[in-house]
Design a protein around this nucleic acid. Structure first.
Length: 221
DNA sequence: GGATGATCATAT
DNA sequence: ATATGATCATCC
């Protein structure tokens, strides 16, 4: 591990066990009353505290380190509660891209996973942070995600975006990603023409994050 | 109860 | 307008 990686992991590890209220107070932030109107608050808080730099770019949060920060909401059993948003699907360009150029690869290559209590019964401020994990995508996982991505890329450039549902993909899935169902962006139609369609995002299924947690937080035989 | 499709807030 | 941060609400 490089010095800057060690420093980042150290800063993150120092937060483990703290409640979001404690973390927020230490940084003069107010905990929102209702998470319904503050869905991304935890992730943005940690980005700010840890010094993420990428902003809205299609690059990892810590660009110089190539590390993406992801909070991981856990249920009462300590398993991931939700899928993880990765990036927007570049509908008109994905056909000309290679796996290693994709934002999915760039963002998942190295991830600082930050588990956080995610049960709705726990008020946002009382939710505690878990022990962060600096994770590097292993060849087995990459193979699965890469195959998912390449299948999606092929279907999208063949104009099949409207036929893709969240059911496709082993670890990766494509779901709508926008303000609402009336949003429109440019995509590729069935005749190879440009059409208006819903914006889509890549998401990582809990099947993948469950496995990551299993392999790194639990005793294995 | 889990997953899918829809939605909410913010930054630039 | 489009990206980021995600969780909600409903269906199965």
């Amino acid at each position: 591990m490089t010095d800057s990686e060690t420093a980042l992991l150290g800063k993150a590890t120092a937060l483990a066990g703290l409640s979001l209220a404690e973390v927020a107070m230490a940084h003069s932030k107010i905990v929102p009353e209702h998470i319904l109107h503050a869905k991304g608050w935890t992730g943005m808080l940690l980005e700010k505290i840890l010094g993420a730099t990428a902003g809205h770019l299609a690059e990892p949060d810590f660009m110089e380190l190539g590390i993406e920060l992801k909070t991981l909401p856990l249920d009462a059993s300590g398993l991931p509660k939700e899928s993880t948003y990765i990036s927007i699907v570049p509908l008109t360009e994905i056909g000309r891209m290679q796996w290693h150029q994709s934002s999915v690869y760039k963002k998942l290559k190295k991830v600082l996973w930050f588990p956080v209590e995610g049960e709705k019964a726990i008020p946002l401020g009382e939710r505690r942070l878990g022990m962060p994990l600096l994770w590097e995508m292993d060849p087995t996982t990459e193979q699965i995600i890469r195959q998912d991505w390449e299948e999606f890329a092929e279907r999208i450039c063949l104009g099949e975006i409207e036929q893709i549902t969240a059911h496709q993909g082993v670890y990766l899935q494509i779901r709508p990603k926008g303000a609402n169902a009336r949003e429109r962006v440019t995509g590729i139609g069935e005749e190879g023409n440009l059409v208006n369609t819903l914006p889509r995002g890549f998401y990582l299924r809990t099947a993948c994050t469950k496995k990551i947690l299993q392999e790194h937080y639990f005793q294995t035989a």
